[in-house]
Each structure stands twice: as C-alpha cells, then as structure tokens.
Design a protein around this nucleic acid. Structure first.
Lengths: 207, 207
DNA sequence: GTCTATATGATGATAGAC
DNA sequence: GTCTATCATCATATAGAC
C-alpha cells in the first residue's frame, strides 16, 4: 500500500522518497515531473503509481515524515529542566538536526503552499507542535526571571528563524565546521534572551 | 522593449509585473502558467510576449527590481554613524520595508532556484550587497568595542534570517501592530550583539 | 510490481491577421 | 500591441499485458 505518510513499507517506496527528496530540494516540487522521479529510481512512470496515488502524496509523505521524525528526535533529546540549560540543549539539537537534514528542512519550509488544505493543516500542526517546545522553555525561563523576554511568541519565532537560517548558507567544507557553528549559535540564542555563556572568546577579547 | 529588468516602461508591462508578483507569491513560479498571468491582466497569452521574451524574464525583473529598490531605500535611510544607533536604524528599516512588501520578499527568497545561472548570479550579487551593509555596521561596532560579536558573518546572517522571518507569520490585524513588532525586533537584534535598549518593559519588570 | 501504451489536457512559445 | 490559431512538448494519471 504505502499510501499513508506514517508507514512507508517497501524498498521501492523508500527509494522513491529518497530520489524525490533530492529532486524536490534542488528544483522545487512543481518543477519536477513524475517522469524525472521515476527515472531517478530506474522505473517507468506507471510503476510510481503502485506506491503513491499522486505526486502530491509523495510530497506530503516527505514533509510529514520529516516533521514526525523531528518531533520524535526532540522528544528523545531529553532537554534540561533548568531553562537556560534547556535553551542551550534545544539550540544544539536544532542546529545539529537541521544541518544534518538540509533537504528535508528546505522542502518542509518551501513547499507548504503545494499541499492541499487537509495535508497542509496536518503539516502545520506538526510544525506548531515543535515551536511549542521552544515557547515552553522561554515561558519557563521568563517565569523564573532568568530570561529577559519582551514577547514570548515573537521571540520564539525569531529564534527559530535565526537557527533555521543556517541552512541557507552553511556548506560542509566551508570556513566553519558544524561544531563551531553550533557553539556560535548557542551564544547567539542565549543573547536573545539576555544571557550569554560565560568565559568564551568574546569575553577574553574584551578583558 | 521592456526586456531589461531595470527599465520597465509601458503601463501594460507594469501591469504584468504586478499580477505576476501576486500569482508567483501565492502559488509559486513553476505552478503559475503564462495563461494565468495573461488572464489576470485581461490579455491573451500572445500579448504577454510583446513585453517579456520569456516567463523567466518576468521573474527576473521582479527579483532584480525588488532588490535594487531595497538597496536604494537602505541607501536613502541615512543610517547613523554610531554603531548601536546604526544597528537600530537598520533593524527598523528592514522590518518596516519587509513587512510592507511581503510578496516581493517572498519571491526574492523562494524562487532563486528558478533563475538561469546568469540572472541568478546578478540577483545574488544584489542580495550580498545588502548583507554587506549589515556586516559593515557589525564590524564597526566590534572595532569600537560596543558590540560583543563572536563571528561577524554568522551574526549578520543570523540577524537577517531573524528579521526576515517576520514575513512567515506577520499578518495585519493580528495581535501585534507593525510598530510594536518593530520595537520588539530592535530589542532582539540589539540583544544579539550584547546590547539592550535601556529603560524598556523588561527592565522595569526585573527591578 | 513493472512494463508499454495511451487518454486527456496543459504548457511555453510563435506566426500572422488586424 | 493585441488577437486567434497553432506547434511541439510536456504533464498527471490510467489500463491492461506480462
């Protein structure tokens, strides 16, 4: 069957998702034809429809799977109970996860408008569930007076935009390693809530 | 002629750009047909080609015009010479400009991959020119020891991602007005470089 | 499950009349 | 400058043989 986004069974279906992921990320969903996807899998067009009822079902499966895996991963990340440590944990998790899955992230952000209302609503719900994790951390830190936050929802969206932005410029083999970027972003994000990790480079420079 | 991005003369050409802007922003470049654009202008397809040689030329004109206007506007914004004031000026400018032109911004970020190498390179150059303005401010503030910045390029991209992110969630008539959002973002951006506007809400809360 | 063949319609772009 | 008509190609999706 392999019709639902949650359970993709067969090897061929997995292959289709893998190739479609790459093609959609590079050229955009609307610009990729089912023939291209089939060819990349070593199939003819007709065979594709044994695994997915429509082209859009492939897109939906990619997005929903990505977001579900993201939610599962952040749930497994076991963030600290202390707000500033939790925010650091969340930042490291987000940067690492997003740098590791640039194509999935790109599609999940760029191809939303190609979804029909129903799958769109489902995907948006998953996204908001992830954003809620961050808002929870921010609210907790605000309540305990360890964060300086003017507006929690806006700050949460800002932090997410800031962090997800790495995917627009980061390339392996560039000036900075993924680990270095992670460290920089921890400082950037903590700064946003009025904190700053003590005893790092920029403090030494000032002293 | 109206073939080059810089100079679009006739009324009809302007109309085409206006309608294409809206259609591309809503459905995506690849998903919009030339017939749709023509119909929105009250034309037949053939007439479109009196004004633009290809569909992609319309996209290119939209992106290049937007970025050129953005550069002109930021140049006219007369940013302060003092780094922290300049950063505040830049933030206010960026938020205001981007909230005011959501469709242009959306297209300029989302449809880059639909450009051929040459127009792509031109558009990227314009984008980088804008980013350079912010990097200049950050470097100046770093040199004068008023900003705490670990890495100027990464911080610049973070700030731009953060600010441009408003366009993904801001809607007129929502909880916050454009002015309120501008104020919040000034604080967020100054926080990123280790500053915070004095005597605002969150300081009173702490006291 | 995959193939070939095909239905049905839309696509970007052009030609030539007015 | 716009129209109508058309080209050649491509699209998604389906049917039926193997």
């Amino acid at each position: 069957m392999a019709r639902t986004a949650g359970s993709i069974g067969t090897e061929t279906a997995k292959r289709v998702l893998k190739e479609a992921l790459s093609l959609f990320a590079h050229h955009g969903y609307a610009a990729v034809s089912t023939r291209q996807i089939a060819a990349a899998c070593g199939l003819q067009v007709g065979a594709l429809y044994n695994h997915f009822p429509t082209k859009q079902a492939i897109l939906h499966a990619l997005m929903a799977t990505h977001l579900r895996e993201l939610l599962e991963a952040v749930s497994n990340a076991r963030l600290s109970n202390e707000p500033s440590a939790a925010l650091e944990d969340f930042t490291r998790f987000h940067i690492r996860y997003h740098i590791g899955k640039p194509e999935e992230v790109f599609i999940a952000y760029m191809e939303l408008r190609n979804l029909e209302p129903e799958p769109y609503a489902e995907v948006m719900k998953l996204r908001q569930e992830y954003e809620r994790t961050l808002r929870g951390i921010l609210r907790e830190g605000q309540a305990r007076d360890v964060f300086q936050i003017e507006d929690v929802p806006v700050t949460a969206m800002s932090i997410i935009s800031m962090m997800t932005g790495v995917n627009t410029w980061f390339r392996y083999g560039g000036r900075l390693s993924a680990t270095e970027i992670e460290e920089i972003y921890v400082n950037l994000v903590l700064s946003v809530v009025g904190l700053r990790k003590p005893a790092t480079v920029q403090l030494e420079e000032i002293a």
